[in-house]
Design a protein around this nucleic acid. Structure first.
Lengths: 347, 347
DNA sequence: TAGGTCATGATGCACGTACCTCATATCTGG
DNA sequence: CCAGATATGAGGTACGTGCATCATGACCTA
């Protein structure tokens, strides 16, 4: 049984009193309006820190008589995982509205850096407080991220990070750990070693390159008997991935394992089943989607590593909320966990 | 690219206009104050439904000049999972405060139904909007839940449900599915069948009985060669569980598996290690805590099924928020997923 | 029909913040 | 030392809802 705090929460009035300045000055500091001497601003900051003032987000949004505007920019195309991300966003639109958050989704051509950059450039700070993007590490995108940030838009990366840019936050799994987990499983599946082919979407995608690195490192350290073939880029595309897998199967009669660290899994399953070798090759893929579910059920895929799109969207929205009013530090977010799915624990 | 809605969100004023009544009447209906004829109330309800009015929770809390008061009632004792639940609550106290939610935690003696009932009875509706409890299915608790609900306190169950009471919501994993998953893994671990002992905390706990049922059903259906010993109740207690496991090991020299669907895992690991048979017996336990982590690392435990306490607390808080203002329907919550942990994907 | 009860309307203040205007104080440069 | 620029203060209104008060009108009953 702990005590109920009787102390009111601190308000702007308290800050003004503590700092020995007027309400107007506190307001100018809080909302970084011009016309405050540095020394005065410091007094206010000190008072804020001392009495532990936290601006009331709800009252703030109420006073502005406007909603927080959030834009998700998500790749389009045949990538089912991106579709499920978009679905997750759609499911949150309603509830978010009740918290004064207005969410819109833009779908752009997958792996088209310039389209993404244009989309970011087109965002107006008055109509968008925060942009959440799924992006690869291309210079044009990185520049657009920094530009948007300078225009006053909080940019967050989702799924795949853009370290080195002005993005305020990244939401996604630890992809190197995912790669290591895949390696650890694959190693145990193949105690005698053998050839394992690796397929990626694009090595410009940070998540893909991180997975690859983790996979390679863990295999090298723990399972040196396994030989890696690839990586080969399938551009997260159904038909391209299918062609790649078909050729791999044809060329390597002794292929023991397959790790697809990107998307395009319906192509993968199709090629495996066409070859009649489904079930004889240990296959690890990413993201629980329709094709991977079918693959698990049929036995074509052994393990799926999943990054829980609903959880990611939830965290993205929460982080956006807490970042929106210039809270300086990192937002408190639960880490996204790597889900491991076999045929038996399919949800 | 979808359109930005230009329409303002509906307010109480809009409801009043649409219903052809005054603001005061709308207020009476919304806050179920007396003095409104049934016919009038219906007009208001209809208007609310028609224009899709949703009360602004933040403005509402602001107007009341008070925080939402949330009480977590969590068992005390040597149960590490309950400790990690309490930790998860503690981590949320700060961020929740920024959303005008005041959280307090009560720890009560584990498995003491009367203590829990007293604790619920002591809650004052003016100082507690919502209670979140972890409880077994005892009549005194069920009565206390219904009582608290009638006093105007929203009661939610956490981890273990109380179907048949007036509790508004349950947050936790699908425990029958967890039991089935355990069975599915155990069956694959023991292709030749054998004796598997089952230990529970208390079969009055709905989560435990659900797991047991799922485990039994799945074994019976898929792995008839496995013989179940027990269940034996260890009351989620370290020393009692240790004694039980020690005796099981002594009595059954041919014990092939052990499923602890309750807590007390430090006792389980201690007994296994003392017997020198750790690693030779397939062991499945629940909840990722210090003892189960150690057990996974040492090989004494093969698999841990986990229910993500942080996620549960997060969902509980979100649900409390959405239920607080008498929103009639179910709150939108992400289901809590069953995490599967082996030595290699320990987080 | 007078007196009472009940349903409803009208209105105003409060909550914590944003943002505006206007007045005054303090500093700066020549 | 004064004009002009800049910094600060004072105070108001608004946001959407909760809650209180008071007035009015309808209806019932003796």
């Amino acid at each position: 049984m702990n005590e109920i705090g009787l102390r009111r929460r601190a308000t702007v009035h308290d800050v003004a009193r503590a700092a020995g300045v007027s309400l107007a000055t506190v307001d100018r500091v809080l909302n970084s309006r011009p016309g405050v001497r540095a020394a005065t601003a410091e007094k206010v900051e000190a008072a804020i820190a001392e009495i532990g003032f936290q601006r009331d987000l709800s009252a703030s949004l109420l006073a502005r008589a406007r909603d927080l505007k959030l834009s998700f920019i998500i790749p389009d195309g045949s990538n089912e995982f991106m579709a499920s991300l978009a679905d997750a966003v759609a499911r949150r639109v309603g509830p978010a509205l009740a918290d004064r958050m207005h969410i819109e989704t833009h779908r752009i051509r997958a792996l088209d850096a310039d389209a993404l950059a244009r989309s970011l450039d087109a965002l107006d700070a008055r109509q968008c407080d925060c942009a959440v993007i799924v992006a690869g590490e291309e210079p044009s995108v990185q520049a657009a991220v920094d530009n948007a940030t300078r225009r006053g838009i909080v940019v967050m990366t989702l799924v795949s990070d853009l370290p080195g840019t002005l993005r305020r936050h990244f939401i996604g799994i630890d992809n190197a750990a995912a790669g290591r987990t895949a390696a650890s499983l694959m190693g145990r599946f193949l105690p005698d070693g053998g050839k394992v082919a690796v397929i990626a979407g694009s090595l410009h995608l940070r998540d893909h390159s991180d997975r690859l690195e983790g996979f390679r490192a863990a295999l090298a350290a723990e399972f040196p008997a396994i030989e890696i073939i690839g990586p080969i880029e399938g551009h997260d595309e159904r038909s391209e991935t299918q062609a790649i897998v078909a050729e791999l199967l044809e060329r390597h009669g002794d292929l023991a394992g397959l790790y697809n660290l990107g998307a395009g899994n319906s192509g993968l399953v199709a090629a495996l089943e066409a070859s009649k070798r489904a079930g004889a090759i240990r296959v690890i893929a990413h993201e629980l989607t329709d094709p991977t579910r079918r693959g698990l059920r049929s036995g074509a895929i052994d393990v799926v590593l999943d990054q829980n799109p609903d959880g990611e969207i939830r965290e993205a929205i929460a982080a956006a909320r807490s970042l929106a009013l210039g809270s300086s530090g990192k937002p408190v977010t639960d880490p996204i966990e790597i889900g491991i799915f076999l045929r038996d624990n399919l949800r």
